[in-house]
Design a protein around this nucleic acid. Structure first.
Lengths: 150, 150
DNA sequence: GTTAATTATATCGTTCACGATGCAAATATA
DNA sequence: TATATTTGCATCGTGAACGATATAATTAAC
């Protein structure tokens, strides 16, 4: 008999991992129409909120390392979605700015958040309970971000 | 002003994506000691529950495609954790079985589930509330698995 | 004002994910 | 029993993630 703690059904990690993958898959048809991937869409969310940010700020916002974000931004630059220019104040920084194409994508993707909201709503996840889910996930994220070791 | 639905803070997807990545990172030091990655650990969870399964069953259990699982299993075979042998009944199948090394890993990883449990517990996620979180994630997963389109 | 330490970004190598495609074995159909 | 379809697994190409390492610019220390 398998110990309870080793059963796949009892793993929080597997649920998060699967939910994350499946929701990314759900985004795929919506984003691929505009030639975007899901992490690229996240970059756009960050830049739509505040344009012209250094690589580091974008990475921090997405909780990613720069060695993940840099190639991502390079691909998006090649697609003409954004530009990467040397910082004037600090020559080490690369300032990432949206092109007009990048800005216009927001209108073209206007219905994506609503589509995804509907795709995810179900018996236990409703506008009423979503805040609880958000709080739990935020707590887990913060706990894992700030833990020194396990 | 940025529309509410486009703010990173209002995205369920980003929370799931971040939580999943961070929890995988938390597993890393525990698993890397035994030369394992996180998806490889998931494969072991499946095989510890039931040894000698075809590739397809493992993939279905993990909600992954065989083109993801196959190379993963090939690497684990190279590490001597499992064997891949042709099915006797159905020659198309590859039966994946644990080696003694693969079986012994369960003892060496005995404290991992507990370590991860502690790493994740926080104010809003406790043994009391975890079932609610599990149910919500399961509902989201099932909804996304069974939706025809969005 | 040199030298040392830090910071911002990039490069490299490995492992996933996953769409697209290929191939051989098994099954269904004519 | 030929032929067509389906099924199980593998290969290939692309885009993440991420640890390790490198490089250049800035700042701190002496």
């Amino acid at each position: 008999m398998v110990k309870e703690e080793f059963k796949l059904e009892n793993q929080l990690c597997f649920r998060l991992y699967s939910a994350s993958r499946l929701i990314t898959q759900a985004y795929h048809p919506l984003l691929t129409k505009q030639g975007l991937t899901y992490p690229q869409y996240l970059v756009l969310l960050v830049l739509w909120e505040k344009d012209a940010q250094p690589v580091n700020d974008i990475a921090k916002r997405l909780l990613l390392e720069t060695n993940t974000v840099t190639p991502l931004l390079q691909r998006m630059e090649k697609e003409g979605i954004l530009t990467r220019t040397k910082g004037e104040k600090d020559a080490r920084q690369i300032i990432v700015s949206l092109t007009s194409k990048g800005k216009k994508l927001q209108e073209k993707l206007a219905d994506v958040p609503f589509s995804m909201g509907e795709a995810v709503m179900c018996d236990s996840v409703t506008p009423d309970t979503a805040p609880d889910l958000f709080r739990m996930l935020d707590d887990i994220i913060n706990r894992l971000l700030h833990k020194t070791d396990i």
